[in-house]
Design a protein around this nucleic acid. Structure first.
Lengths: 205, 205, 205, 205
DNA sequence: GACTAACCGAGACGGTACGTCCCGTCTTAAG
DNA sequence: CTTAAGACGGGACGTACCGTCTCGGTTAGTC
C-alpha cells in the first residue's frame, strides 16, 4: 500500500523550507544538512538523548544554530530525521521453508542489532519515544516495522504450509519474540544469546 | 564540629531523617516531605518526566529548593521515592487451581492498570528508566516484580500439576504476557481488552 | 583578471555608480537607491539611530540586503548619505543692516528647525556623531556650517560697521548662540521661543 | 529641598530588589554589584557605549548574566549607576569675590575634566543620552548640575555686588560657558586651553 | 540577436548577543 | 538544625541581526 502517487511531490519532507512552489533565494546547503544529522547521531550515541543540546550539535557540525532551527522545529524532529537517515541494516532474506529456523534467524539478527552498536541508539531513542508520537512512529519505521512484517509473513506461511496449527494467532505470535527482546532491553535485563532459540522452542513447539 | 557520630551512618541515605544517632535542632518537616512527593507525582503526570524541574516542584509544594536537595541527591531519586510512595494497587490473590484462568486474570489486572490512571505514570516513567538504572529498578519493584513473581509461581504450579508440559520454559512464559502488554504500551499500539484472553489461548494452549 | 582599470578609482566610492571607466552590465537601480535612503531616514526618525538595522531598512525599502552593502560599507555611511540627501532648508538671506535683528532672526530659524520635524532627526543623529567622525562632519555640513558661516559674517559686518565693539571675539560670539540652543536640545531642556531674543539682548547688548 | 523624609526609606534606589519591606532570602552580593559597575566603566572607556554588551560586562566581572539583569532592567540603567558611582571630582570652592576670576577658574576646571580622563567617559556617554532620558538626567547630575548651580550663584553674587549689571540674564550667562565647551566637545572641535579666558573676556566684559 | 557582465530580490550561511529559564550551591532571618 | 526565600555563577534556550554568500532572473551595452 502506501502508494507511489503520494510520493510524486515529496514537498512534505520534514525539512522542506516553507511550502510554496517557486524556490527563491539561496538554496539550503545539503552539506550542512548532512553534517547536522551526523553530529546529532554522534551526540545521541555519546551522550544519550537527554544529553543532546542544539548548541552542542551546532558546534559539532560547525554550523550556526539558526541553520538547525531553520530546518527543524524541535529536537525530536531533528532526531527523527537523523535516525531516518541512519542506514537501516539490511535484513537477510530468510525463507528456507522451515518456519522455526527462519524465525530464529530473524530474532537472532534482531538481538545482534540490540546488543551491537545500534542498541545504544535504540535505547537512547526509546527513552524519548513515549513522549513524542512522531518519534515513536519513526522508531517503529526504522527498527521495528520491516522486521515485524517479515515475521508475520513468515508465520502466515507456516500456518499455510501446515507447520503451525491453523488456530495460530498470527499477529500475537509475530509480536511475541520482539516484545520479549524489547522488554529485556528496556528493563536492561540480560539479553542472553540463547533467547531466540528458547523463544522458538517455547512458542513454536 | 560536625561530629564523627553523624557520619557513622551515611547521612544522605535517601530521605532518612531520623538517622542513627540522636539528632539535634529542628526536625525535618514531614509535611514538606509529603508535599514534595505529591507535587512531584502531580507534575510528572501533567508534564511528563522531561518537563519536571526542581524549581517547579518546589514552588508547587510551596517549599524552598534546598529542602528538596537536602533530601534527594537528584531528580531521579526524588521520582523514585515519589513513585515508591505511590500506593501499589493490591493484587487480587488468585489461585483457583486453573492456571489459564488465573494467568488471564493477572494479565487482565495488569492491562487495567496500564490503561487506567497509572498508565500515564508508567509511560512517563518508562521513558526515563533506560537512562537511570535506579529508576529502572524502582519501576521494576513498583510495577513489575510482584506480578511477575506471582505469574512465575503460577506457571510453576501449572507445570507441577501437569496442566502445563514439563518442558515449559517457566521464566520465558512468565515474561511473555507482560512483555507483549508493555510492548504495546510503549509503542502506543492498541491495548485491546481481549489481549489477555488471546495471550492465554495462544501460549498456554 | 579583475582588471587594473577598475581599480584606478576606488570602486567602493560611496554611492558612485558611474565610476571612472566605462561600466558594463546592468546599471545600478536609481529607484532602489532612493528607496533605501528614504527608508533609512524614515526608520531613523521612527526608531532612532540605535534602532536602525540593515535588514529593517532593506525590507522597508523592499530591497535585498546586498543592494545596500553594494553601495555603502557601513551603516554610518548610509546614514550620512541619507542625511545629505535630506534637503537642507533654505535659509532666509538676512542682511537688514541691523546686526541684532539679523542674528535674532537666524537664531529664530535655527530654533524652529530644532523644535520642528528636523529636530528629531538632529537629535537621533547627534547621538551617534561623537562615535563616528564622518557622521559628525556630515552633521556639521548639513545642519551647522552654513548657518555658522553666515552668523560669523554677520557679526564681522557688525564689528566693521561699528555696531559691535572692535574687541569682539567674532568666532566665540558666532558660536555662542548655537551652542546654547544645542546645549538645550541635547540636554532636552526647554527650548523656549524667547531664547533668541534673550541671547541677543544678553550677548550683543 | 530634597528633604530628609524622602530618604527614610531608600527603597527606590535603582537596584532595590522588588519593592516590599521585609527582606527575605539571600541578600544581594555587594561585591558582585561593585564588580559589575567597575567592569561596565572599564568597558565603557575601552569600547565606547556602543561596544558594551551585557555578556561582555558579565564575563569581565566574572558574574552570571542574571546577576546583572536582576539589578538593572536595561543597559542604560546600568550605565547610569556605573557613572553615578564614579567619583565626581571635587570642585574647588571658589569665591574670591572677583566674579570674573572665579568663573574663569570654574570653566578651567571643567575644560580640564573634558580633556582629561573623564572626557572620554563624557563623550561615550553623551552619545547615548539623547536617546535615554534617564541617562541624560544622570549625566546632568554627575557632570553638569553641581557646576552650573555654582556658576549661577557666582553670577548672582556678581550682580548683587554690582560687578555685573543688574540687567544680566543670570540663567543664560551661567549656561553660556558650559554650552560652548560642550558644543566644542560634542563636535570635536578644538578645546583650546584659552577658551575660559576668552569666554570671560567676551561675555563678562 | 546572442553574449556577457553586473545588477536585482530573496534568503541561507556561520556567528554573536540578546533576555529568559533552570541548574545545583550559597546565604540570609526566622522558627 | 531546618525552614522559605532568593541570590549566586553557569549554561542552554530560541530569536534577531550581523556581513557574506549563493541562487534564478533581469537589464543594459558590446560583439
Amino acid at each position: 500500500m502506501g502508494g507511489v502517487s503520494s510520493l510524486v511531490d515529496g514537498d512534505r519532507a520534514p525539512s522542506a523550507p516553507p511550502a510554496s512552489c517557486a524556490r527563491v533565494g539561496r538554496p539550503r546547503s545539503e552539506s550542512a544538512h548532512q553534517a547536522i544529522l551526523d553530529a546529532a547521531l554522534e551526540a545521541l550515541v555519546e551522550d544519550g538523548y537527554a544529553g543532546l543540546t542544539i548548541e552542542g550539535i551546532a558546534s559539532r557540525a560547525r554550523v550556526g544554530k539558526a541553520t538547525i532551527y531553520r530546518r527543524w522545529a524541535s529536537m525530536p524532529e531533528l532526531v527523527v530525521e537523523a535516525l531516518g537517515s541512519h542506514v537501516c541494516p539490511d535484513l537477510p532474506v530468510v525463507d528456507s521453508g522451515d518456519v522455526r529456523a527462519d524465525l530464529q534467524q530473524v530474532l537472532q539478527s534482531a538481538l545482534e542489532t540490540m546488543t551491537g552498536e545500534d542498541g545504544q541508539l535504540m535505547a537512547a531513542f526509546a527513552a524519548e519515544k513515549s513522549r513524542h508520537p512522531e518519534l515513536r512512529d519513526e522508531f517503529e519505521r526504522v527498527f521495528v516495522a520491516e522486521r515485524r512484517a517479515r515475521v508475520r509473513q513468515l508465520i502466515a506461511r507456516g500456518v499455510a504450509s501446515g507447520q503451525l496449527p491453523a488456530s495460530t494467532d498470527v499477529e500475537l505470535l509475530a509480536e511475541a519474540g520482539f516484545a520479549i527482546l524489547w522488554h529485556r532491553l528496556s528493563l536492561q535485563r540480560p539479553l542472553s544469546p540463547d533467547l531466540p532459540e528458547r523463544i522458538v522452542r517455547q512458542f513454536l513447539a
